[in-house]
């Protein structure tokens, strides 16, 4: 299985054939709930998500596509940190608490998304890792930074797809900010700032507002304006970044 294929499959989903997803019918919403329970999600969480879905109707095809895409990224992050923590002598004692906390969250995200997708959940792809990923700590950390910053941008890039699926939008936002916390911490361990200044960003405009002429910002560096807004990535951009990990 390969990430590229999964994602292109998702992109080609035809809303009219959405019935193929087991949880599309209201009848199956209960099943959706039990999948969450089976996946080890606490009953209270499963219950509230199920209730929310029951109130708002079944997820749209767009939302299902986002969940599958997110699951694939979480599979990669989860496996990456598991392998890193298992590699003898890779993660120093001083950083194990941080890496373990991140790993714990990625495992929880996989379980949550698998539970939400139920039988429609894609199986974990086989990933490959560039040479040195699990033998050089600087390489491992640099990879972690790339995965976390990309994860933040990837979730952000899908928010608009979820605007009609409120409970799933909220859940995605709750994962998104956790990935941002991870990204900030990994960057700090690397000696970088916790925020991103992408020098490719040269327009300095957000939502039609020219940032550099705003009042009270005299003397602010270009970095400040870039860092203040985290930019999204499209699926195609994320794929290009994820290419080295694709089997």
């Amino acid at each position: 299985m390969n990430l590229f294929k999964i994602i292109s499959d998702i992109e080609q989903i035809d809303p009219e054939i959405s019935e193929r997803y087991s949880f599309y019918s209201r009848r199956n919403l209960l099943k959706f709930g039990s999948n969450l329970v089976a996946a080890g999600i606490p009953a209270i969480v499963a219950g509230s998500l199920n209730k929310a879905l029951a109130q708002s109707g079944a997820p749209s095809a767009a939302a299902v596509a986002v969940l599958q895409y997110a699951l694939t990224l979480e599979y990669l992050e989860d496996e990456f940190y598991r392998m890193g923590l298992a590699a003898a002598g890779l993660v120093p004692a001083s950083d194990r608490t941080v890496i373990s906390q991140i790993s714990k969250h990625e495992a929880a995200h996989v379980a949550l998304l698998k539970g939400a997708l139920g039988t429609a959940a894609a199986a974990k792809p086989t990933f490959k890792y560039p040479a040195g990923t699990f033998t050089s700590y600087p390489t491992f950390l640099a990879t972690a930074r790339a995965l976390e910053d990309t994860g933040v941008a990837a979730y952000k890039g899908q928010a608009g797809e979820l605007i009609n699926d409120k409970p799933i939008l909220t859940t995605a936002l709750q994962i998104h900010s956790v990935e941002a916390r991870h990204a900030s911490e990994v960057r700090r361990i690397l000696g970088l700032k916790g925020w991103v200044s992408d020098t490719a960003q040269t327009t300095f405009t957000q939502g039609g507002v020219a940032l550099k002429t705003l009042p009270n910002t005299t003397g602010f560096s270009d970095d400040s304006f870039r860092e203040a807004f985290d930019e999204p990535l499209t699926k195609a951009q994320v794929l290009a970044i994820a290419a080295p990990f694709l089997g």
Binding site: V152, K156, A159, L173, H176, S177, V178, E179, A180, R181, A183, S184, G194, W195, Q206, E227, A228, F229, D230, E231, P232
Partner: peptide, 9 residues
């Protein structure tokens, strides 16, 4: 979305 992740960072 662009702002919330900066706050999380």
């Amino acid at each position: 979305g662009k702002i919330v992740s900066v706050e999380a960072r």
